[in-house]
Design a protein around this nucleic acid. Structure first.
Length: 501
RNA sequence: GCCGCAUUCGUCUAGAGGCCCAGGACACCGCCCUCUCAAGGCGGAGAUCACCGGUUCGAAUCCGGUAUGCGGUACCA
């Protein structure tokens, strides 16, 4: 069973890596792959390497690189080698850790391959390759390179050269069966005869992914390559390249994909995929990590709340699932709520501070936090919940209508009367505390023969502007005596104007 | 098309031959609590373990096959 599979590779020191491409913000899938690598490294005492895969200069940007590193840090994922900040200095003995700075190394290895005959120049144009592919498809053959440039004479080559054509470098794939023992999937077997020779360096000199990944993993002494399942089918290419270059073969582990609700690979098109977006919406990194870890792994028990440290202690790469998992927003929301509720008042206030209006003082925030905690799914929910404190009396008054103020079965005159009684009762309170205010309000409701819920409704609307609010009397305390009474007075006036007795 | 991988409640999962006429969680429904909304408590509904065949006294668990889904098949990563 895969759970028992050895994770050692020739007793090499364990070194794993994450290799994000700064062509977009940190993606959910990249974050999860990074997390699994991190957990694996910590569980095994291995070294974790960050490598920036920016060979695609046209699409790579410093902004995306910054987004990726920043959000990785936000999640609490740390690494031992590679740049710690975007554009920052490398740490570690195997640098540079940025592919754009490693071009000389790729060129050297490409030259070796060319010299040994394992790779050859290919002068075919994209149009020619397309035409060949179309014919193959029409004949229901596997679309693979037909090897034309393998049979070129020196004269042919000279002719292409004279034409101004630049050759790509193509790797010669031997027709053999490639087998490997995947950490997660077990024995996997591919027939490389089906592959066809593939390009490793473009005509413009830019080396391609399958080639550079193999070179870098060797030079950085990566012992375990843990990556997304979408690379499973690419692995035989990598192994063929590794053998041709005389490298050591790492252990491979392919983790299942995170899926859209329709079970296709999670994509920006169908789902929210940028970690930064979840962060901006008020998800906690603790919840995100816990959630991501359980998309494809479980400790085998019914426990489900795990900190990053606890995950590191329990994580087993062999227990990772084989099937993909749908990203379930409801579940993330639930977990986020659990984590928010577990925060101390001080911690929650700290996290809320940057989201809330300056009009809410630190002292008010401290009082507000206990009222909000159980009502939040995301941190940003606090903005709406605290709006009555942040906005002016006039703005808050505009949130409600007289009709909303009326409990069912009560008319404007009745409510105006009750509201007046309530206002007077609250005004008479010697102490402006939630307990005292509530007692006074209840007594007034009783005296009038009103149900507390009905009696409180117009108060809630007048004070907070909403039918749904944090606990009423706590809200009044935070608002303060003066502003509370002013809002009640204003509401009374509106009621009387709207419903003359 | 070809190659590969996968398949337990809607979703995330537990499950390694009898403990499973399948357990937990989210979501959903109901009740309780209750100043609204939440949170919390209790309960409910929800999976013939994709299907078919085999092995076995006994299969979600082992072995075939089929179906479906997904991934790969680029001078993208």
């Amino acid at each position: 069973m895969s759970a028992q599979r050895s994770t050692s590779s020739d007793e090499r020191p364990i070194r794993v890596r994450m290799a994000p491409s700064p062509t977009g913000p940190l993606h959910i899938g990249t974050a999860r792959t990074s997390l699994y690598n991190y957990l694996f490294a910590r569980a095994t005492g291995g070294t974790y390497v960050l490598r920036i895969e920016d060979t695609d200069l046209a699409r790579s940007t410093p902004e995306f690189e910054n987004d990726i590193l920043d959000n990785l840090h936000w999640l609490g994922i740390t690494w031992d080698e590679g740049p710690q900040t975007a554009g920052g200095e490398d740490i570690g003995l195997f640098g540079p850790y940025r592919q754009s700075l490693r071009m000389d190394r790729y060129a050297r290895e490409a030259a070796r391959l060319l010299q040994s005959g394992a790779a050859y120049h290919c002068w075919c144009t994209p149009e020619e390759l397309d035409a060949v592919r179309r014919v193959q498809e029409a004949n229901r053959e596997a679309p693979r390179y037909n090897g034309r440039c393998l049979r070129l004479t020196d004269a042919d080559r000279a002719a292409f050269e004279a034409e101004g054509r630049r050759p790509a470098l193509r790797f010669r794939v031997a027709p053999e069966t490639i087998r490997f023992d995947d950490l997660i999937r077990g024995e996997v077997e591919f027939d490389n005869a089906l592959l066809g020779d593939f390009v490793i360096v473009r005509a413009d000199g830019v080396p391609l992914y399958h080639f550079v990944v193999v070179v870098d993993d060797e030079q950085m002494e990566i012992s375990h390559v843990v990556r997304g399942e979408d690379h499973l089918s690419n692995t035989p290419k990598h192994i063929a390249l590794i053998r041709a270059l005389g490298y050591r073969e790492p252990v491979f582990g392919h983790i299942p994909l995170i899926l859209n609700p329709d079970r296709s690979k999670m994509s920006k098109r169908k789902s929210q995929t940028a970690i930064s977006d979840y962060r901006a919406e008020g998800y906690l990194p603790e919840a995100m990590v816990n959630f991501l870890a359980f998309l494809g792994w479980s400790p085998g028990t019914e426990e489900e709340i795990f900190s990053l440290d606890e995950l590191a202690a329990r994580f087993e790469i062999g227990a990772v699932h084989k099937a993909g998992a749908v990203f379930d927003r409801d579940r993330l929301d639930h977990l986020n709520g659990v984590y928010i509720r577990s925060l101390t008042d001080a911690d929650l206030a700290l996290r809320l501070r940057p989201l809330l209006s300056e009009a809410i003082s630190d002292a008010t925030l401290a009082g507000l936090v206990p009222l909000l905690r159980e009502r939040m799914v995301r941190l940003t929910d606090a903005v709406e919940l605290s709006g009555f404190l942040a906005e002016s009396d006039d703005v808050v008054a505009a949130w409600w209508s007289v009709a909303e103020l009326l409990p069912t079965g009560r008319d404007g005159a009745e409510v105006a009367g009750a509201l007046g009684v309530a206002r007077d009762a609250l005004m008479a309170c010697g102490e402006w505390s939630a307990e005292v205010l509530e007692a006074a309000a209840r007594a007034a409701a009783d005296a009038l023969g009103w149900k507390a819920g009905d009696f409180f409704r117009p108060l809630r609307l007048a004070v907070t502007g909403k039918a749904v609010s944090p606990p009423l009397f706590g809200s009044m305390v935070l608002l303060g005596r003066e502003r509370t009474l002013a809002r009640l007075d204003a509401a009374l006036e509106r009621l009387r104007a709207g419903a003359p007795a």
